[in-house]
Design a protein around this nucleic acid. Structure first.
Lengths: 228, 228
DNA sequence: AATATAAGGTGTATTTTTTACACTAAGCAA
DNA sequence: TTGCTTAGTGTAAAAAATACACCTTATATT
């Protein structure tokens, strides 16, 4: 690696997952200088023959083994001095993935010692300006969830309304009213009620729902919003 | 200029102005290849010792002679093949400026033959992927105006409610109801009513208002929105 | 001075959306 | 059978959004 960079750019990714009622992101522990031993967002240099999008997809794949996940670019960081070795521009993306719980995450690249899922409430100080990048990205999805149904990507394909509400609650960081939440969510008419019920719970099982892309495309001109 | 670039990046700016009831952007006519003779967004390469923000400010200054205007980064374009000479990443910003009508715009740099204000409804096909950049930026301010008072930056310091409404109408591209608009805008309590009236009109003069930053900071937790 | 012209400025009733709030039903476990 | 835990439901009140039309005021014209 060169001692000093000239106009290099990287892609960093905030990869969100929802697991056991907690919103988490994937962090890697760096295995090389600078910031060796620190936690950081998964990211790497972009090849010169690679579109930014493609680089983001590659980084996601190297971090999680997943392909074809929707990623959204949310900001580009280019302050002087944000990288100790020289001028680096970073294009930041976020992704939301479906954690089935059992799936282990094994980063392929060797610049990372390990990858871990960390609750968004417990994010430590990160390498470079990654703390700032994280805050900006988190704020972005918090805003976006209010008018776009991005939350479904974090849930299993079949989910209960209570799970959906919990997810909204952890993203928005506030309690919502159960009746109002259900009323409103159902009123958008973008969910498909299944004939199935939850299994393996030691109490009354809840109905399962699916996100219905077709209905969404037809009905979704209104905006979603939750204030209590 | 090199025949082929390696990992170079640029900043392009959409500079909005509001003049005689029309929303316009500043375009330059390119004076060098590629796309010589085409219209393009003002933009240029970023120096390696320059923060992205600084480059955006510099480009604004070179295009308009203005300094210290608020600019917002809205997207970074990095598809392969978007520049005929090689890989170029472009960070796009928009700015909103106060056109006092008489002010001429004289671009300093010699890569531009001329700079012109063009109504957003009459934008021609632009160089590179600038048409796409424009559309994305315009969409952004259209969304943003609904919940942030960015519109005031386009108006003279003192303005009438009708002027403000006209501006909203051209940005949102729809007619608004006069009584509802006024009621709502005044209800936010972010305007200061002045003791002055419009001058030089051949009909009843309207009251002038100012945007009141203090009131805004105090009162503005709600969101602005207009649907009719 | 009278009149015409053009935009300024205002209120209310209706509909829609948001909010607040509490109990019964169902399923499992002991 | 009882207890525990979450599922699931409705209504009334408040707030926000919408639809809608006429009088006022300043200037220009005759």
């Amino acid at each position: 690696m060169p001692a000093h960079f000239d106009s290099v750019f990287t892609v960093d990714c905030i990869i969100f997952g929802f697991d056991e009622g907690e919103l988490k992101i994937l962090l890697i522990e760096r295995n090389e200088a600078p910031f060796k031993g620190w936690f950081a967002l998964p990211g790497y240099f972009v090849e010169n023959t690679e579109a930014i999008e493609t680089a983001a997809q590659r980084i996601l794949y190297e971090s999680t083994g997943l392909k074809g996940i929707y990623m959204e670019q949310f900001y580009t960081f280019g302050a002087l001095g944000r990288h100790p070795q020289g001028r680096v521009i970073t294009v930041a993306y976020y992704a939301m993935i479906r954690l089935t719980g059992q799936k282990d995450v094994k980063p392929v690249s060797d610049f990372a010692k390990q990858a871990v899922w960390v609750n968004v409430k417990d994010i430590p100080e990160l390498a470079f300006d990654h703390s700032r990048i994280f805050r900006k990205g988190f704020e972005k999805i918090r805003n976006k969830i209010s008018y776009q149904p991005i939350a479904f990507e974090l849930l299993p394909e079949k989910f209960t309304l209570t799970q959906l509400q919990n997810l909204y609650e952890v993203i928005l960081n506030k309690k919502l009213d159960k009746r109002n939440f259900r009323k409103k969510m159902l009123s958008y008419d973008i969910l498909k009620e299944l004939d199935e019920k939850q299994k393996g719970v030691s109490y009354r099982a809840a109905k399962l729902y699916k996100f219905d892309k077709r209905k969404f495309a037809k009905n979704f001109h209104k905006e979603l919003s939750f204030s209590k």
